[in-house]
Simulated scan of single mutants.
Amino acid sequence: MKKVKKVVTQDLMNGALDYAAYRNMIKLLLQERKTTGNNHSDEMVAYTKMNDQRMNRWDKTLQINEEVTNLVKALPLMQWLIITEAWCGDAAQNIPFIAKLADLNENINLRLILRDEHPEVMDAYLTNGSRSIPILIMMDESLNEQAKWGPRPEPVQKMVMASKTIPTLDNLAFIESIHKWYADDKMQTLQNEFSSLLKKLNTDG
């Protein structure tokens, strides 16, 4: 069994936000034309407003399929920690699914922290050397790491990595293509990825 990285402690989990508090924090910040982190530019606030709308939509419409529902309900006591920021588009597309998943099992304690307020945690979970988010760390009740997921579904990750090789990339058009992928996919890829992940957790457990 892989030992948990020492950056994740029970004190950290106790002080972290639950999903409802995270959503409420974002709405309160938007009322002040702010977002999380230190960059409160019009652009970043606009991203955050769109993300709030995306999360609202997923919260209302998202349905977890029967296989994933049964798999998550079979899990023992666990603690899940998400590293995120309000302005992150991938976070807005994926976190509502994770939150709804955790809601299906009262044994799962889901908490969220902000990337830029916890660099020591983020730097323990880099993706190809980058502080990419969201990251989900799945731990047992004693905070021993069991699995992790993130920062995005594999097809989107491949799109992002490929985009880094294009020197003349239209960044706005690329971001729009990412969100179109999420809309077209309707969470099917994410459900498949978590089906595999949860099967492994149940087998290992």
Rank of each mutant, 00 (worst) to 15 (best):
L190F: 13
I95T: 11
Q31L: 11
K27Q: 09
I95K: 03
I26S: 03
T203M: 10
D170M: 13
Q31K: 15
H179K: 11
P76N: 07
M159Q: 10
L114T: 08
I95R: 03
W87I: 00
K148R: 15
A162G: 03
P167R: 05
Q63P: 00
P167F: 08
E67R: 09
V160S: 04
H40K: 04
H179S: 06
F194M: 14
S177D: 07
E67D: 09
W87D: 06
T36L: 01
W80Y: 12
I98A: 02
S142I: 04
S163F: 05
M50T: 07
N14S: 12
I133D: 10
A46Y: 06
E154S: 10
V7Y: 04
R115K: 14
L136F: 13
V68T: 15
T36V: 01
Q31C: 01
D90C: 07
K5L: 06
F97L: 14
R111E: 13
N38E: 08
H118V: 07
D103C: 08
S196A: 14
N202I: 10
V4W: 02
N202E: 10
S163N: 07
M44Y: 14
R115F: 09
I83F: 08
M25A: 02
E66F: 11
Y22G: 01
S195M: 01
G89P: 02
T127W: 08
E117K: 09
E66L: 11
D123Q: 15
E176M: 13
I137Q: 01
D90M: 06
I82Q: 02
V4A: 14
